[in-house]
């Protein structure tokens, strides 16, 4: 079929682990936005979700760190974190290895990717899935971009990955949703945890929804680290989704700093299937 929906969302583990400690109104608005995105995915009839995230040393380490990796397992498992801490029960997560294979083969026509036949999801996948497919009814195709350890790929390669994913998704008969997770300012697990650069986040999000390629690719790692912290290297995931949906202007469904969640939480809708393509 083709891409039927795309967006980005936050993946802070504190959204579930410290959920009730946030301002109640902000939390309610955030959860409503997550639910709106869940509904959009369901209304679009998505038969699979390609989820682009940045894992945090759950599967990949510096002994052989893949720049880009796509899952091809029969099923996935998560969360890898203590479920009593993350407050998300451990479970198996449905996959679609046949679709994974076809997507990987197509992506490889233009971008080199690794594949992984085993994958334990951490909060980068598990928190969004908890809200977007809480019953785990939709098969997941995980995609990872290394945003944890230098050297990291330049942003124009994330853009290229987004274009390649879009072409691959459009070549598949299934209806597919594409979700990126993470990427606003945060200084995770460091002495500066909880610091947020709201102005930097809002500028980034404005570039994302307006698909300003030149502005997005102009971010340097040095500037990103200084203004957005080590967690902001994850802008690679949202740049990837912006590239995949370049033809449409997106919408901000939620964007507010929530200090107890240690980041600006955002839910962006970056692509909805045009009415003339709906079946």
């Amino acid at each position: 079929m083709s891409l039927v929906y795309a967006g980005t969302c936050c993946h802070s583990p504190a959204i579930t682990s410290r959920g009730e400690m946030a301002d109640p109104q902000l939390r309610r608005q955030l959860l409503e936005a997550f639910d709106r995105q869940r509904q959009a995915i369901e209304d679009a009839g998505a038969e699979a979700i390609v989820m682009v995230s940045s894992e945090h040393f759950a599967n990949f380490f510096m002994d052989n760190m893949p720049t880009f990796s796509i899952g091809i397992a029969d099923e996935y498992y998560g969360p890898i974190e203590d479920p009593n801490w993350l407050k998300i029960p451990r479970t198996t997560i449905p996959a679609n290895p046949d679709l994974s294979l076809r997507l990987i083969n197509q992506v490889m026509q233009s971008v080199d990717v690794c594949f992984a036949q085993e994958w334990k999801f951490d909060h980068g996948m598990s928190v969004p899935l908890h809200f977007l497919t809480p019953q785990y009814k939709i098969p997941i195709i995980p995609v990872n971009i290394n945003c944890q350890s230098k050297p990291m790929s330049p942003l124009h390669r994330s853009w290229a990955l987004g274009l390649a994913l879009r072409e691959a998704i459009n070549s598949a008969p299934e209806k597919i949703a594409l979700i990126g997770t993470g990427g606003t300012s945060h200084w995770p697990c460091t002495p500066d945890s909880g610091k947020i650069n709201e102005a930097w986040d809002r500028t980034l999000i404005d570039h994302l929804i307006n698909k300003r390629k030149d502005a997005l690719l102009a971010y340097t790692d040095e500037d990103t680290y200084r203004e957005g912290g080590g967690g902001a290297f994850e802008i690679r995931t949202s740049v990837c989704i912006a590239a995949a949906t370049e033809e449409q202007t997106g919408e901000v469904w939620f964007c507010e700093p929530i200090p107890i969640y240690a980041t600006t939480c955002s839910i962006l809708s970056l692509y909805q299937q045009p009415l003339d393509l709906l079946t």
Partner: peptide, 12 residues
């Protein structure tokens, strides 16, 4: 490592 990119004391 990653946090030595600036002054090594983080963002503050």
């Amino acid at each position: 490592g990653l946090y030595a990119m600036q002054d090594g004391k983080g963002a503050i």
